[in-house]
Computed example of a mutant assay.
Amino acid sequence: MTPPLRATIVPVTPIQQNCTIIWCTATMKAAVVDPGGDLPRIHAAIAQAGVTVEKILLTHGHIDHAGEAKPLADALGVAIEGPHEADRFWLARLAEDGKTYGIDGVPFEPDRWLVDGDTVTVGDLVLDVYETPGHTLGHVIFHHPASKLALVGDVLFQGSVGRSDMPGGNHQQLIRSVVDKLWPLGDETAFIPGHGAASNFAHERRTNMFVSDAALAA
């Protein structure tokens, strides 16, 4: 039986950020999540998947995740949804940050800011939105309950968590986001992070040096 959601990861930018294309297998409608750069690579992955992109989704406003969201949206004629409005600061300085990191950065405002409890659609799929501050103030994650899949941006990684030493970052807030927003989605939930390999919440609760049950109980 064909799963309702499929995903392919396209590492982009010198920071090797996981841009993810997710699509509804029933309609072949897709969303591009966090297109930070390397648009030719993203366009090629869209063509290879044979999907029609209907929107761009953003977890947060950092350059490696959002730098080329606006040029991609313009090229495809689609809207940008996310992140939370608290990341307006980062989206406004994409050109400046792009020069620092050698990435093309185009400032913009999304067509829709997202808040906790919102949903976003991709074809027939409905994904839940959760506010998960700590890495940035306006960070959000996307969860598809039926697929037991979450796209968590830079909140949680395999074996680590997102950095909290940039403006708007807060380590304790980040840990609370993981415990209060991610863990309740269920141990069996797999996640695609903003960098590195995919994992699942059960594995991280056993082994992650920052947010494992043992680490948090210490």
Rank of each mutant, 00 (worst) to 15 (best):
S177C: 11
V126I: 09
T136Q: 09
Y101P: 04
W90R: 14
L57R: 03
A79G: 12
L91D: 00
T59I: 11
W113Y: 14
D124A: 13
F142D: 01
A146D: 11
L94E: 05
H135M: 09
L127C: 05
H135A: 08
V161R: 01
P133Q: 04
V126L: 07
L156A: 06
P83G: 11
D118P: 06
S164M: 13
P83S: 13
L174A: 14
D97F: 03
H84D: 14
Q172V: 07
P107A: 09
H62I: 06
D124I: 02
G138L: 14
G61Y: 04
G67P: 06
V161I: 15
M166R: 15
L127R: 01
E131T: 09
Q48P: 00
V78G: 13
Y101K: 09
G162Q: 07
S164H: 15
M166A: 15
G50I: 03
Y130E: 01
E81F: 15
G77C: 10
G153F: 05
H139P: 04
L137V: 09
T100R: 14
P184W: 13
R93A: 06
N170G: 10
L137T: 12
L174V: 14
V155F: 08
D128V: 00
G138V: 14
I80Y: 08
S160L: 09
Q173H: 11
G77S: 09
K148N: 10
V115T: 14
L127I: 04
D116W: 03
P133G: 05
P167S: 12
V53N: 04
G159K: 02
Q172F: 13
W183Y: 11
H65Q: 10
L57Q: 05
G159C: 04
K99Y: 00
E109Y: 00
V122Q: 09
G61V: 02
T119R: 11
R176N: 14
